[in-house]
Amino acid sequence: MNVLAIDTSNQPMSVAILKDNQLAAELTVNVKRNHSIQLMPAVDYIFNQANLTPKDLNLIAVSEGPGSYTGLRIGMTTAKTMAWALNLPVVAISSLEMLAANLSYHNGYVCPFFDARRGNVFTGLYQVQNGQMTKVKDDLNTSMESWLEQLQNIDETVHFISSTNHQFDDLIKEKLGAQANIIQHSMNLPRASMLAHLALEREPTPVHALKPQYHRMVEAEAKWLEQNQKR
């Protein structure tokens, strides 16, 4: 299988191509730049590196969120349109799961998270055993403090992995102490190749139905619902 994978869910951008199920080219950039400008040239670059053209693809993988709304829409629109245009299956995968997959060979619990502002995070919980990762808790949008208190009930080490920043490091240490292992260096960056490998095992989504998973309602809609449910 030749797979194109795209992640622009947060500040880092990662694109990858698998050729016959093997990683042929991957580009990950972690600077504050505009994904809308960067993405297609990056895709073009890895196609050239892999010596493939869009017509050679068999599958497209994309991270569906959570993450930055705008970032998600850039990656998802690109993946969705290419899949439709080339009549290819497309698999959408949680951007948190993609990040957790970096730790597929560390037995234990993995907690990926992204900053969601005002002390909140987009997060989830996964468990790794002998190279197999399973989901323990669905992705959610919650306050980091109360989430960490829930994690205190786990008896094992929890690996925390986040590409966005380290502003929660102190809070994690305060709540979980030695139980927490905060992943450092570039191990915490998303890799589109992980997305591609995960996608090989998943069911595709019908292309027209594909949309980002924001895990948060638009404020205007939330307000409208609140006002109209009171009546």
Partner: peptide, 8 residues
């Protein structure tokens, strides 16, 4: 982004 992806 749709236009660029389709054209590409």
């Amino acid at each position: 982004n749709a236009a660029k992806a389709l054209a590409y």
